[in-house]
Simulated assay, not measured.
Amino acid sequence: MAIRQDTIWERFLSPVVRLLIDEQSLRRYAESVDWEKESANFRRDDVTIPSYYTSQNFHGIEGGYLNRSAAVSYDPITQYVVPPNETWVRQALIDAIRVQPRRILDLGCGTGSTTLMLKQAFPQAQVIGLDLSPYMLVRAEHKAQSANLDITWRHGNAEKTVFKDASFDLVTASLLFHETPPTVAQAILHESFRLLVEGGQVLILDGNQNTLRQLEWLNDVFEEPYIRDYAAGSLDASMGAAGFAAVQTQDVWWINQVTSGVKPILRENTIKISVGQYAPTTDTTIDNNDLEDFGSPAFGTKA
């Protein structure tokens, strides 16, 4: 497993972020959970963990996301590395939704921050969060319980889910594609196309590819093994290759972007979606240090 010990993150940024995080609360939370027992509630024997996921470290975490340390530390760290504000950035995906979904699938949901916001925005919809790490799903479930939100969490691979064709009105992915090789990202888009009903929408929130290409040094900040491939690509082109129509990308605070696509309706020649320049609609902040009593980083609530 390749480990880069000389990243800017390891040398400079990680120590700074650690000063901002309440590590004692994190430790108490981690020790209060029987991770193996709770992760077993999500773990599926028919899920094969791909090598690109197990052979690399992500964000300097040895072993990537397949351990409880990643589940505990992901939220507190992410709030400081998604500028200018994590909630505002995730809200951009919510604001770009142009369908009235009855069923929503959030791919690579991690600890569920965007998944919870989707359920809050569409309380009557069935919302499913899918992730390869059962440990991340444990944390996601704790957050959903704290926020009193009914969300289904599934252990699975976004490249090949077990769901039937045309099962969802909306498929989303937040901060996932920069952590996958290009062939995997394309496979996820093809799977998203299969899962959507005609007229259904896919939304991908991630780093701004134009910005990442212009500021090469940003790619050296964190231990992200696939980020250069992601930056060199075009999500618009990848969505078109997967069959999506009305593909548009909007900048989100220059550092990030939201890309939208629609599964064409066969009886219509074109589908148009009005996607304007992103403007924030919320002033909410995420308190990812609020872990007492299983507090929810997504909403700053207590159980």
Rank of each mutant, 00 (worst) to 15 (best):
Q126I: 11
Q120T: 15
A140G: 15
F163C: 13
A147F: 02
L107Y: 08
V127Q: 09
N148D: 12
D150H: 12
Q100T: 08
A125V: 08
I104P: 01
G110S: 09
Q126T: 14
Y135H: 04
S174F: 10
N148E: 15
L130T: 02
Q145W: 10
H142Y: 04
L105M: 03
W153T: 01
V162G: 02
K164V: 07
I128R: 09
C109N: 07
A185Q: 05
L137V: 08
L105D: 00
V127R: 14
A140Q: 11
T114D: 02
A158L: 07
A158W: 01
F177Q: 11
T114L: 15
I151Q: 12
R103F: 10
G108W: 10
N148G: 07
P134A: 07
L107A: 14
V184F: 00
S167N: 02
F177H: 10
L137N: 05
A166L: 08
L176E: 00
N148H: 15
L176P: 05
L137S: 06
K164R: 08
D106R: 12
P134Y: 07
G112I: 05
L116I: 10
T161W: 09
K119T: 15
D150M: 11
A147T: 03
G156W: 11
Q100Y: 10
T111R: 01
H142Q: 12
F168T: 14
F177M: 13
Q126K: 14
G129Q: 13
L137Q: 04
R98A: 03
T115D: 14
L149W: 06
P134Q: 13
A96T: 01
P123M: 05
P134D: 05
A96R: 00
V138R: 02
S113C: 09
G156E: 10
V184Y: 00
M117F: 14
W153N: 02
Q124I: 04
T172N: 06
L116A: 11
I104A: 02
E159N: 01
V162F: 03
K160T: 03
R98E: 04
E179M: 14
T172M: 07
T114S: 07
I97A: 00
K160H: 01
S167V: 11
L118H: 12
S113P: 00
D165N: 11
C109R: 05
R98Q: 10
K143W: 08
E159A: 02
P123E: 04
F122Q: 06
G156Q: 09
P181W: 00
E141G: 03
I104Q: 05
